[in-house]
Amino acid sequence: MESDKIEKLIEKYFEATTTVAEETLLRDYFSQDKVADRLEQYAPMFRYFAKEKEERFTKPVVVPKTGLSGRIWYSWAATAAIVLLLVGVYFNTSSSADTLQDAYTQKEIAAAQEALSLLSVNFSKGAEQVAYLKEFERNTNRFLDNGEK
């Protein structure tokens, strides 16, 4: 009879629905030498929990000071971030100081301008087509809305 009750408590224990009193009952049952054969497999686990519950941490805990040393670290980190930002800005602006004439020939610049001009014309044509599509969609929706009424 008692082993049936213990089995139900073990099921509740593994479902994490036991109370503290029920867990104490389980620990007490498995700390005995006389445990039902079909429950013997759970005995080492509960004995381990009982043994480990008594273990205490005895070493001293060192808490680092966060006063002045923390502020000093924070100020050094902020200074390093500012220096990195300034170095990045310097190298970014110094590399873009070259003019296009220094980097490319006149022939290459003219070819790029022509390609961009063609792209612009075709893009404008595409934008006009989108306007037609929007008008078509609006009229289609108006037609469909009237048909539903």
Rank of each mutant, 00 (worst) to 15 (best):
S96A: 12
R27S: 10
I72D: 03
L25A: 14
R138A: 15
R38H: 15
T17S: 15
S117K: 12
F30T: 03
T99W: 03
A80Y: 07
A50D: 14
E148P: 00
R38K: 12
S94D: 11
Q106I: 10
D98L: 12
D33P: 02
N146V: 06
L25N: 06
E15N: 13
N139W: 03
V20C: 04
F46V: 05
E11G: 01
L133E: 08
Y90D: 03
Y48Q: 14
G88P: 00
Y29D: 03
W76E: 13
T66G: 15
A36G: 03
Q101E: 15
V35T: 09
L100V: 14
K65W: 00
A78W: 02
R71Y: 07
D37K: 09
P64W: 01
A97D: 11
L86D: 03
F49V: 08
G126K: 01
N139G: 04
A110H: 06
T17H: 06
V87P: 00
M45F: 15
S124C: 00
Y13C: 06
E15H: 11
Y42W: 13
A81T: 09
E40F: 07
Q32G: 07
E15L: 14
D102C: 04
D37M: 02
E2W: 01
R71S: 08
V61N: 04
P44M: 04
D4F: 06
V62M: 06
L85A: 12
T93G: 00
K65T: 05
T66D: 08
A21I: 08
L9K: 03
S117T: 12
K53V: 01
I72H: 04
L100S: 10
K51R: 15
F136H: 09
S96E: 12
W73A: 14
N139S: 12
G70K: 10
E40D: 10
D28H: 13
K5G: 04
S95R: 13
L144G: 02
D4Q: 09
K149H: 10
D98F: 11
E2G: 01
E128A: 09
E52N: 14
G67R: 01
N139K: 15
R138T: 14
F14G: 02
I10E: 02
A77I: 07
V121T: 12
V62H: 08
Q106N: 12
L68H: 04
R56L: 11
A127N: 08
D98Q: 14
S3T: 05
V121H: 03
